[in-house]
């Protein structure tokens, strides 16, 4: 069973669960959090949906002479420059795994001021309301690690203003 079939089965399971969790059914009130779940290598990362502006296909970026190896380059979107952060490099995954699974397919544009950041991920699986705490969530038995974009801002630029653009 290849990777696409696994993902398809995961989507179907997610769909079934989503239908089962629709209002009107038997629900258990548990605190949940809306996350955009992405894959980076073999890992699943969850980003608060409020931090995301948009998800777009990754079609390359302009390479810049930057000191941080995790910064792949910049792209222009909606009249702004976004610094593209390679999540694989950010998480210090091996280059061999990078070659085996191919480059990033999607970009997540994050909210916040300069510098505007875009996360290069393998694939954006979708929006999921997941229960959990302590920085990790459960997605059909798989562990989803919560990723806070504030760590990027503290590392690559000024703190984001309180107000979203």
């Amino acid at each position: 069973m290849n990777r696409q079939e696994e993902r398809a089965n995961a989507i179907l399971d997610l769909r079934t669960r989503a239908l089962a969790e629709r209002p009107g059914g038997i629900t258990i009130e548990t605190p949940k959090r809306a996350l955009i779940v992405v894959t980076v290598g073999a890992s699943l990362l969850g980003i608060d949906i409020a931090e995301v502006v948009a998800a777009i296909p990754f079609e390359g970026c302009a390479r810049m002479p930057m000191r941080e190896p995790a910064v792949l380059g910049v792209i222009g979107r909606g009249g702004r420059f976004y610094s593209v952060i390679g999540m694989r490099r950010m998480l210090a995954l091996s280059t061999a795994e990078d070659n085996a699974t191919g480059g990033p397919d999607h970009l997540l544009l994050l909210r916040g001021g300069a510098p505007h950041l875009a996360l290069a991920v393998d694939r954006v699986l979708g929006r999921f309301d997941l229960a959990g705490g302590g920085g990790s969530f459960d997605l059909d038995g798989r562990l989803v690690a919560f990723f806070d974009p504030e760590t990027l801002r503290s590392r690559f630029g000024r703190p984001a203003p309180d107000a979203h653009p």
Partner: peptide, 17 residues
Amino acid sequence: SERAHLLALNAAIEAAA
């Protein structure tokens, strides 16, 4: 379908916003 996937995702993001 890929574009629709991303379109649906962005719609979800906008809906969340």
